[in-house]
Structures are given as C-alpha cells and as structure tokens.
Amino acid sequence: MTGADVLLLALGAVAVGSGVLVVTTKHLVRAGLYLVVCLGALAGDYLVLGAELVAWVQVLIYVGAVVVLLLFAVMLTRAPIGASDDLDRPGWPAALIGGGAGLGLTVLLVDAYRWGTVELPGAGSAERLGEQIFQSWVLPFEVLSVLLLSALVGAVVLSRPDIGRPRPADSTARSGVDVTTGGRR
C-alpha cells in the first residue's frame, strides 16, 4: 500500500458513501449537496491518477455548473424544504438490478486486475492533453462543439412553448411567455 493507494481508498470511500446518500436521502436539496461531495471526491481521484486537466474540468463543470443547474431545477419545481416521503418507488427491483450491475462489474474488474500494481504514467497536463485533442481528436472535438450548440438551441426551443407551434387566436397566456413575443406577430 503506497500513499497513492491510501488516498485512492479514502477518496473512493467518500465517493461511494456520498453516492449512497445521493440515492437514499429524503431531502431533495441535500441530495444535490451530497452530489457535490461525491463529484469532488472523484476530482481528487483524478488528481491522484495523474489526470490534472480532467480533475479541474470536473471541478469547474460538474461541481460548478451541473450541480448549480440541478439545484436551480430543484427550486424551480417547488421542491419541499424538509424531508419528503414520496420520493421513492418500491425498492426491491431497483436494488436487484442496481446491486446486480454494481456487484457484477466489481467481480469482473477484480477478476481482471486482482491486486496487481501499475506505474503511474506522466501527468495529463493541459499541454499534453491539448496536443492530443487538437492533433488526434480534432474531428470529434469539432463534432462535440456542434452537439453543444444544438443542445443549447434544443433547450431553448424546449423551454419556449411558443416556438414552432401555430399560434392560436386566443393567446393562451402562460406565465412568462408573452414578454418575448411582442414583436414577432
């Protein structure tokens, strides 16, 4: 057991423990906050594994942006503040399939790697990853930028019910929609 192993064990335990809390807690907002802990522990894992750029991108995008979006969604859907009892469906099929998937993958990976060791390669700094992305993976990178743009446009279209629909004569005034349609008719 080297120092890296101890760190990986501790961070993995934190990640799995807070992951358990994410899927079992009765508080909606606390689920989001446990998700922050889980994703932060995973960012620490990436740092130990030498993936510096991925770790900081994880902190920026996941902990910074995705969790904030999720918490916004929790608030916009008028989630109750305290504990709520109607968050879960009957549990045993989910426990069966989820436990089966998790334990099956665990057995598979433990059988494949046993207790062997590998040397950590050089750190994945921004310079090296940038060389790889802009030399070998430049086409997927560009396709991904197009995908991000289309996802952005799709999200805007989805959240504006007045786009792409023939306008009825009696404008069914929903809240927050009519502000933007003044000049378009």
């Binding site: 799995v16 989910a94 436990g99």
Partner: peptide, 24 residues
C-alpha cells in the same frame, strides 16, 4: 498504484446510479 481500487469505486458508483434511476 493498484488500479483495482478506482475500478471497484467506479463499479459501485455505477451500481448506485442504476439503483437511483430505477428507485427515484
């Protein structure tokens, strides 16, 4: 570095995710 530790972490997290998607 023993790669089995992060691999097992990832497997357990995936199982938790499947459980959460089906349970919530």
């Amino acid at each position: 570095m023993r790669p089995v530790i992060p691999y097992v972490t990832a497997a357990l997290l995936f199982g938790l995710g499947v459980y959460g998607v089906l349970r919530r």
